[in-house]
Write a protein that binds this DNA or RNA. Structure first.
Lengths: 206, 206
DNA sequence: GGCCCCATCATCCTTTTGGATGATAGGGAG
DNA sequence: CTCCCTATCATCCAAAAGGATGATGGGGCC
């Protein structure tokens, strides 16, 4: 009995590549492709794949993490295996939290992908060693939880806005912005906006 | 007579996808694959492809722009078509300057890639409309030319370092750093480090 | 009803940043 | 041999950012 797989990636070339790589092995069968998260959810409901192989960045529309969460709500829920280029902590952790059964980087060998699909179909969690290390690290030092408002401020900071500009954009006083910024700094354990921005970008917090 | 193509991409899956997409059309023939720039140059010298289809980000080793420049030094030189995910100005302009015959984004349809390869083989320049617009924009508003030292300072700024820390890292006084920073601001036409960082990241200056 | 978190705003003070201006020395172009 | 650019450093001043502390009101939780 071969494992049925649904591919989700916004790049036609990558989908073709995955199809070529997966179908020739004979251990899995690609039964569908989607270019967006929305399409993936609709197709999964219809095709009932064993495993959904999903990119995190999907161009327009919902991202891979949201897609994963929605797929896991289905009944029966397919196993979701993330295959992506990026290895930022927030994305890895976010995907796992959303219910992904694995997280692979796109530069892995084709056999590793097949291996991951088989593990995912079997109900196991599959992570490459480097990703697993990041997850453990994330468990030891969890990313600080910023409030929605703080994230909003941090995003504006990252575009180079001064406190005054952020205040204007959010229709609050500069004092309020400074208060948010101070909280952000405390939570991120930094002492300057540029360091906060750097950290946030590195971890994928924004 | 079909067009011979060498694929350069660090992701095995993408190479497979390109092979599948290109070979089935019959108008081009993939005669080789390389995962790094160095391997691409060696293979191109040996295989003499008409066109090299090259990613810009190649993991370890030299990047796609350096690879392009080296390939264009060969005699006979293959046409180089860039196929990548990123559309930052500095990368597009850099690739064109290095002698690329075209610049495609990975989310394009397979036929567009074939079209690009044929145009490149014919000696034409091939750019999708959106990329062409960026190039024209780049000609109108060329990216300011920062000195090596200024780039170095800007990179350190972008990691969140304060002037004092940059000074320490570069073994100069803070006054010197401030002077560099002021020059950077003038050239980039910004008035704060975070804006400079944002602009530099957007354009690919760093 | 109390407790805590969040968002809002404020004041006071210190440090950092940014802007202006200028000096010195070396290297390259004309 | 100048002229300009670059890298280096300096001083002075103004603006912005950052740190401390506290106040107020709204929600949620036990």
């Amino acid at each position: 009995m071969t494992i049925t797989v649904l591919l989700v990636d916004d790049h036609p070339v990558v989908r073709s590549g995955l199809r070529a790589v997966l179908d020739t092995g004979g251990r899995v069968t690609v039964i569908g492709e989607a270019a967006t998260g929305e399409a993936a959810i609709a197709l999964a409901e219809q095709l009932r794949p064993d495993v959904v192989l999903c990119d995190l960045r999907l161009g327009a529309g919902i991202d891979g993490i949201q897609t994963t969460a929605a797929l896991r709500e289905l009944d029966p829920a397919p196993a979701v295996l993330i295959l992506t280029t990026f290895d930022r902590d927030a994305e890895i952790l976010g995907a796992i939290e959303a219910g992904a059964a694995g997280y692979l980087l796109k530069d892995v060998a084709p056999e590793v992908i097949v291996e991951g699909i088989e593990r995912a179909a079997a109900g196991d969690m599959y992570l490459t060693p480097d990703v697993a290390a990041r997850v453990l690290q994330g468990v030891r030092d969890p990313l600080p939880k910023l409030t929605d408002r703080e994230i909003e401020v941090l995003r504006l900071l990252s575009t180079g806005k001064a406190n005054k500009e952020v205040a204007k954009a959010l229709f609050v006083t500069e004092a309020t912005v400074k208060s948010h910024v101070a909280h952000i700094f405390t939570k991120l354990d930094v002492d300057s906006r540029s360091r906060a921005i750097h950290l946030a970008q590195e971890t994928g917090l924004i």
